[in-house]
Design a protein around this nucleic acid. Sequence first.
DNA 1: CGGTATCCTCCGAGATACTG
DNA 2: CAGTATCTCGGAGGATACCG
Lengths: 114, 114
Amino acid sequence: MGDLEFKSAVETTLKVIGGKWKPLILCHLTEGVKRFGELKREMPEITQKMLTQQLRELEKDGIIHRKVYTQVPPKVEYSLTEYGQSIREVLDVMSQWGRRHQKRMREMDSSITK
Amino acid sequence: MGDLEFKSAVETTLKVIGGKWKPLILCHLTEGVKRFGELKREMPEITQKMLTQQLRELEKDGIIHRKVYTQVPPKVEYSLTEYGQSIREVLDVMSQWGRRHQKRMREMDSSITK
DNA sequence: CGGTATCCTCCGAGATACTG
DNA sequence: CAGTATCTCGGAGGATACCG
């Protein structure tokens, strides 16, 4: 486990799905195909610039697909690629551990309060 | 999967083990108990300040244990707590996905070069 | 509607020096 | 040996305005 490959692989994963917005965006896209405005509405705190930027990076990494409808007004749909579906299990494990950790933190807080 | 809890749990995990240095530190500590200087030597690029800072945060989150030997010269040992052992599986999944992604990226590169 | 293009802010992280 | 204490800076991320 301590080998170099292991460590660099972990860092690769964090480069692709880490950061402030990507995990959230990916969670939303696991629900299905979404339009740009739809994603924006579901994440009110993200700026248009950041949403565009992060989506472009995920697209470059092959995780998501960007489908442009050439029409007026424009319509753009985002979805996980078949390959992109594979991060689901990573998100799942991270979510499970996070839930456990949240619970633990709450318990520690209340034991101090007592 | 798309529920609020799921998303916040993923973010919680990234807050605890994400960032530039924590995954690396944790990988090293999965190998066993390490002294401060030992970790520093194994990660030459990290500054003393960042190493200390990140270790403190991991300690606060209950992931690692800090054992101080009151002696001169000082000796401090770091190790995963029993609870901390549980991030192993998270790191494992992330590493597996990362390895897969690295391979995929290499293949895409070479298909362009051709 | 789904973006660019600029400009700006803030803080994560590095460099360096000092210390119990 | 294992740290603090400052100072500094780049770049991630935000605010705002404009565009096809």
